[in-house]
């Protein structure tokens, strides 16, 4: 069990690090797909099948496609300019700040005495139960999420739409 978790962690972290350090955006997008798939596998490992499927659908299926489209639409000249001093400076600073945050977090995780030490059996949560929960106590949140998705869809369309749209006759 633990071994599987460690392997998954290595896969997730490794693909994430490589993805975010590559200079080729297409490659990093594809590697991120692998990272998200690893996270979905982690959910499966933890027993949250439904979340795993949602992760697969939303991240691996949808967001990765949107990212790929964005990459293709905003592609600049293939000749990537050499990394300048500013880039390196920014990278070092980011590494320092990120490393600090990582040290704090890891220290907190390791230094905190967690009460649950014996892993119990995998809890069973059927889709039916999740559905009852969503339509019962959390129905307001569900509705709000529905509205949020609609609004963000419209917003994305408006933002990305061509601004000086020509009349239909002109485009023919």
């Amino acid at each position: 069990m633990t071994l599987a978790l460690i392997l998954l962690s290595v896969l997730i972290l490794g693909s994430a690090i490589v993805a975010l350090s590559l200079r080729n955006l297409i490659h990093s997008a594809l590697l991120l797909v692998a990272c998200w798939a690893g996270i979905a596998a982690f959910y499966l490992w933890a027993g949250a099948e439904f979340v795993a499927f949602a992760q697969g659908l939303v991240y691996v299926g949808a967001i990765s496609m949107v990212v790929l489209f964005a990459v293709l639409l905003t592609r600049q000249g293939t000749a990537s300019e050499p990394l300048g001093f500013a880039s390196w400076q920014r990278f070092i600073l980011a590494l320092v700040a990120g490393g600090g945050v990582a040290g704090i977090l890891v220290g907190a995780v390791l230094g905190t005495p967690l009460t649950v030490t014996t892993p119990g059996p995998v809890p069973v949560l059927t889709v039916k139960q999740i559905g009852a929960q969503l339509m019962g106590p959390h129905v307001v949140a569900l509705l709000v999420v529905g509205i949020l998705l609609t609004v963000s869809l419209l917003g994305a369309v408006v933002l990305a739409a061509e601004e000086n749209v020509k009349s239909p006759e002109d485009e023919v």
Binding site: L5, I6, S9, I12, L13, F42, G98, G99, V109, P119
Partner: peptide, 19 residues
């Protein structure tokens, strides 16, 4: 414990994203 492992994973992933 596995919980600590999971938390470590999430912490590191968070820091990778942050960086």
């Amino acid at each position: 414990s596995p919980l600590q492992l999971c938390l470590l994973l999430s912490s590191l992933l968070f820091c990778v994203g942050l960086v």
